[in-house]
Each structure stands twice: as structure tokens, then as C-alpha cells.
């Protein structure tokens, strides 16, 4: 564990708390992509199956359990509790286009051709693109509540912080995980546009609005 990773994980934790805070205070899931949230549940469930057969640390197990339960809870909030505030008509990204290539990639790139390792690989590839339905929705509506953009910024910061973590591990621990690194760089790159608007508008006190 190094500081980059710790701050990355804390940022991930903060992003989920911000998401829950947004839903609870506005009593609405408006502006959130159900598809992205459903993809995150898929990511966590397929990656953290090792909770049942591989113990890393208490920290690791607690975080994994939190990510699975909180992401499932968000789906419940979107589909049941605050269902009337969810608008599927603007959540139109075709997730088949993400799932198919991720299945294919995980069959080609994995560390062992076993069910668990292929699922792990799949979850890494899927996580790298899971935010796309959300960013696509943002692009479509052209604006977002500030709290939603803070959620996305924390999520993007988590991914960005994992990059120096990998550089650190490469030099200090002689460890490198090519699948995670490649997917992680792609994932972080997807946030570049968002971060540009976030820094130049939201953090200057303006509304998050995309040029028409």
C-alpha cells in the first residue's frame, strides 16, 4: 500500500458517498445513468468473487464488501425508491457495444485461462468503459448538478491516482500488472474532457454546462 493507492481508494470511497448524498438530499436520481450504475455492479461482482476464496487483508475485504453493497443499493434507489425521478429516455447508450468487446478482450488477455481469471480480466476491461453511458448522458443533456459533477470528479481522481501508484509499484516493488495498467490508462483518458469543464467551470463557481 502506498499513498497514491490509499488516496485513490479514499477518492473512490468519497465518490460513492457523494453519489448517495446527492440522491438522498435531492431525493432524486435525475442526471444519473442507470446503465453506468448497473455496469459498476457487474464490475464489482465479477471482480470481487475472490472474497470467497482469497484473503488479502481486512482493508481489502471491507472495501470490496462496501463497493458491492453500495453499488447494489444505488441500483435499488434508482429502480425502486426514486424510480419516478429516473428518466430512461435519455440513458440511451448501447451497453451491448461495451459488453461484447470486453468479453472478447478478457478471453484473449488474462493471466490464466480459468473462469475466475477471465472474470477478473473482464471486470477490469468493463470498468474502464463503464462510465461511458454516464458521460454520454451528460453530453446529451449538456448540463449537470454540481453535486453530480463532484461525484464524477472523485471517480475520475480515483482512476488518475492509480497511475502514479503503478509507477511507484514498478520501481519500488518490481510489480507490474499490464492488464490493469492498460485499462486504467484508457479509463483515465475518458475523463479528460469532463475534467477540463469541471476545472474551468464548476471549480470557478459556474454551472456545469457544455457548449451547445
Amino acid at each position: 500500500m502506498n499513498l497514491f493507492r490509499l488516496f485513490g481508494d479514499m477518492s473512490h470511497l468519497a465518490s460513492i458517498l457523494l453519489l448517495l448524498y446527492k440522491i438522498q438530499t435531492t431525493r432524486s436520481v435525475r442526471g444519473l445513468s442507470f446503465k453506468t450504475q448497473a455496469l459498476y455492479v457487474t464490475v464489482f461482482v465479477t471482480r470481487y468473487l475472490d472474497l470467497f476464496y482469497d484473503y488479502v487483508s481486512l482493508y481489502n475485504s471491507v472495501m470490496k464488501t462496501f463497493f458491492i453493497t453500495s453499488s447494489c443499493y444505488v441500483l435499488y434507489l434508482m429502480k425502486k425508491k426514486y424510480r419516478p425521478t429516473n428518466d430512461p429516455s435519455i440513458d440511451t447508450f448501447r451497453v451491448e457495444y461495451l459488453l461484447g468487446p470486453c468479453v472478447l478482450l478478457s478471453l484473449i488477455f488474462n493471466y490464466r485461462f480459468t473462469f475466475a481469471e477471465i472474470l477478473w480480466s473482464f471486470s477490469i476491461f468493463l470498468e474502464s468503459v463503464a462510465i461511458l453511458p454516464q458521460l454520454f448522458m451528460l453530453q446529451r443533456t449538456g448540463e449537470a448538478e454540481a453535486i453530480t459533477t463532484h461525484y464524477l470528479a472523485a471517480l475520475g481522481a480515483y482512476r488518475a491516482l492509480y497511475i502514479p501508484n503503478w509507477i511507484y509499484r514498478y520501481w519500488m516493488e518490481d510489480q507490474v500488472d499490464p492488464i490493469a495498467v492498460t485499462a486504467g490508462i484508457v479509463q483515465t483518458a475518458l475523463y479528460v474532457d469532463f475534467f477540463y469543464v469541471y476545472f474551468t467551470k464548476v471549480l470557478q463557481g459556474q454551472r456545469f454546462e457544455l457548449p451547445a
Binding site: H12, S57, K64, R112, D174, Q175, D177, A180
Partner: peptide
């Protein structure tokens, strides 16, 4: 550098 696949990250 050695490849991991150890999956100790989240």
C-alpha cells in the same frame, strides 16, 4: 519487472 495477476488492488 514481474507480472502479478495477484489482484491485491481494488
Amino acid at each position: 519487472a514481474k507480472e502479478t495477476g495477484l489482484h491485491d488492488e481494488l
